[in-house]
Write a protein that binds this DNA or RNA. Structure first.
Lengths: 352, 352
DNA sequence: TTGAAAGCGCTAACAT
DNA sequence: ATGTTAGCGCTTTCAA
């Protein structure tokens, strides 16, 4: 090989990295002074501070993060793992909600100085016990998730996008379910629907439980029959089948005039199912899905969605995390963030 | 201060973690001995080794990863970032390909002892310069991606799922494009199609360039006209519009009898577009999409897909990475992995 | 076969 | 205002 190979692995030190002491020597100062200058601490004369900085810049100095971590006792590293409530774990990122929550969490965390390590879905704490994690974000945990317990037992604080009330060290951000369900059902009602049907996962997560409860309450208030179809499993197949069940109508053969799908499914597939069952959307069926799927905007007609606003959840969660980690003060365990109903043609009754 | 607060460090350490020296003291041994016992190095009497291990276990000792890193000089941390070729960067994970590649990369890496940090899409090296990354995985970089340059300039090896030939320190795994395109077109041909049309992104990535070339070559070989529609932008909207252009037929008004969509789009949406244009699939149009989208299995008819096998790419890439990092030997810069054609009803001519 | 001691690169008490 | 020094917790020569 001709050209001096500077890449390769560490074994044969690629480029003997510039250390603090090198900068100090070069600038004719001490480590302390240079360190203070770069970290903007201590009392230094402006001239010296500038000189230290200039030298560091010129030499291309990059502080060694590991050494800093060791000194600080914190690694500025957080884990991100999917809880047990998620079924199709190996491919959880394919869900637009998780995809966006994940990306937003990583971005927000980094902005606040924390690197986010993606932990394999469904992995147990033992698999990553060696990592110096300051905290772990557990998405969509079960009511009594084992991963949450494992992490807490290891003395690591847990942050979640689902309520994990009552466990010290566990914090959460969740959506305002009550308001969410009402916004969708109120919208249907305003559009004239009187026989709405709900498709919701048969799970123990707070969100789904509360969706069910909020729907029941709303129906009672409005004197409308409570029609619900529960989905046992996650995935497009099961959800579409549940939708089809919902669309066949009640035992008396009365067909619904509005459909709220809370289980995650591809909006185009839900729409196609409605078509197969002879519904015109929005002519004789108003449709809304709880979904972050962008394909909802591209169907004919576009599908109304109730967005859980994963970015907002991520931001609130990371702010919370940083506050707990850095101020250590007694923070509230939970926070609610609002949802957003994006009304599109699929749920707007035509005039005339 | 009431409780003996060691100097620099955590605000108020939750559980004063057990250190190596604690185990040593408890076992009546030295740090050296315990370290050797736990790492299975050195020459120790079986009795002592067992005693050290037992004590460590009993005390719940967990080695401090940061200290180890500082000693070792490597952090066992790799970065993962999306290259410049990806358009909708903020939501790149919503693409099933990226979602699966990302998850599989994280899982494989962790299995090999490396934690994967998810870096915000489109972020520059400066935003995470502080992280002690041993390597960075750049997905879908442009032909001369700036992120790749930045990372290489920082002396960090780069691994990619797209060819980045010719830059020392850059390694890649890519798909066998030629074989991929041929498998799809051959399949169409076997099913009797004679007027296939290709929809492909107008990008400079090796994959898309080679898809174009392989298609041209295949058409020439088979004496068939080369029909191609280029998509300028990523996203369901632009791709669906390109599909519609492709389906309107050539200037002479001759309509295609097979459609290969290489640009990423939701299969249900592509299918719906074909319907809108009066095609029966697979009756008068055979359809195949390059996609990892699971919704392809749930349409009516299910859509044939050409899978790039992100999991295989991830595994090959991480194996490669580990080899380069740990053996440092002169490894080949690139590897090809095969694709897989999942034939479904959308591309199978009916009998009778 | 085991232990003492040096030091990875950095920051912060404590001098000067 | 700047420098000296002592570690953070671990692994690894090198002595005993």
């Amino acid at each position: 090989m001709t050209h001096g190979s500077r890449h390769g692995g560490q074994p044969s030190s690629p480029t003997p990295r510039v250390r603090l002491v090198d900068v100090a020597r070069e600038a004719g100062l001490s480590k302390t002074t240079v360190s203070a200058a770069l970290n903007d601490t201590g009392r230094l004369s402006p001239a010296v501070r500038e000189k230290a900085r200039e030298t560091a810049r010129r030499m291309g100095y990059r502080p060694n993060a590991t050494a800093r971590q060791l000194r600080a006792g914190r690694a500025k590293l957080i884990g991100y793992v999917v809880g047990e409530a998620v079924d199709a774990r190996s491919v959880f990122l394919e869900s637009p909600y998780f995809a966006r929550l994940t990306g937003a969490t990583a971005a927000t965390a980094l902005r606040r100085g924390y690197a986010m390590v993606l932990l394999p879905a469904g992995s147990l704490q033992s698999e990553w016990a060696d990592l110096p994690l300051d905290a772990v974000v557990v998405t969509d945990p079960d009511a009594d998730d084992r991963i949450v317990d494992d992490v807490l037992a290891a003395g690591i604080p847990v942050f979640s996008d689902r309520s994990v009330e009552g466990r010290p060290g566990a914090y959460w951000v969740d959506v305002d379910t009550e308001a969410a369900v009402r916004s969708a059902l109120d919208h249907f009602h305003e559009q004239g629907a009187r026989r709405p049907v709900l498709v919701v996962p048969d799970s123990t997560t707070r969100f789904h439980t509360e969706v069910f409860a909020a729907h029941r309450e709303w129906c009672a208030e409005h004197g409308l029959p409570e029609r619900v179809v529960r989905v046992g499993e996650a995935g497009n197949g099961p959800v579409v089948r549940a939708v089809e069940t919902a669309l066949t109508g009640d035992p008396a053969g009365r067909r619904p005039d509005a459909l709220l799908v809370v289980a995650e499914a591809s909006p185009p597939l839900v729409l196609a199912a409605a078509r197969r069952h002879g519904y015109d959307v929005p002519g004789d069926l108003l449709l809304a899905c709880v979904s972050e799927d962008v394909t909802a905007e591209h169907t004919e007609p576009p599908v109304t969605t109730l967005s859980l606003r994963p970015e907002a959840i991520a931001e609130a969660g990371i702010e919370h995390l940083v506050r707990v980690l850095e101020q250590g003060g007694r923070e509230p365990a939970g926070t609610l963030v609002p949802t957003r109903l994006d009304v599109r043609a699929s749920s707007v009754r035509q005039h005339g």
